[in-house]
Amino acid sequence: MDADRQARIDALLDRQDIVDCLTRFSRGMDRFDRNLFLSAFHDDATVAAGSFVGAPDALYAWASALHEGGQVATHHNLLNMTIDIDGDSAHAETYYLFVGRNRDESNWIAGGRYLDRLERRDGQWKIVLRTNMIEWSGLVPTLPLPFGDIPDLHANGAPARDASDPSYLRPLVNRRTPHIPQ
Rank of each mutant, 00 (worst) to 15 (best):
V19K: 04
T94E: 03
N35L: 07
Y168V: 14
T82N: 12
D44L: 00
I127K: 04
E119A: 03
A55T: 14
D10F: 01
G138L: 08
Q6N: 12
P141E: 00
M81F: 01
G112H: 02
V72R: 08
A160F: 02
G112P: 06
T82I: 14
T23P: 00
R175P: 01
A11K: 11
R5Y: 14
P178Q: 03
G112Q: 06
N156V: 05
A48G: 06
I9Y: 10
E119P: 07
G157K: 04
R5D: 01
A155C: 10
Y168P: 08
I127C: 08
V99H: 10
R101Q: 07
V99A: 13
I83R: 00
H154A: 13
G100V: 10
A58G: 14
Y168C: 13
D2W: 03
K126A: 13
W125G: 11
I127S: 07
F52K: 09
S167F: 05
D30S: 05
D86H: 14
I9P: 03
S164T: 13
V140F: 06
L12I: 10
T74F: 01
N102I: 00
C21I: 00
D14P: 03
I109K: 10
D88P: 02
L13M: 12
L36G: 10
F32V: 00
Q71E: 12
M29P: 08
A49R: 03
L66P: 02
R31M: 12
D43A: 14
N132G: 08
Q124G: 05
D88M: 07
I180S: 13
R176Q: 15
D33A: 04
A158N: 07
W125F: 07
D116N: 09
Q6A: 15
E135K: 05
F52L: 05
H91E: 11
N77S: 13
W136R: 03
S39C: 10
G87E: 03
I109C: 14
T177E: 07
R113K: 14
H42G: 01
V140Q: 12
A40M: 06
Y168D: 09
Q182N: 11
D4A: 15
N107S: 10
F98G: 02
L78H: 07
Q124K: 14
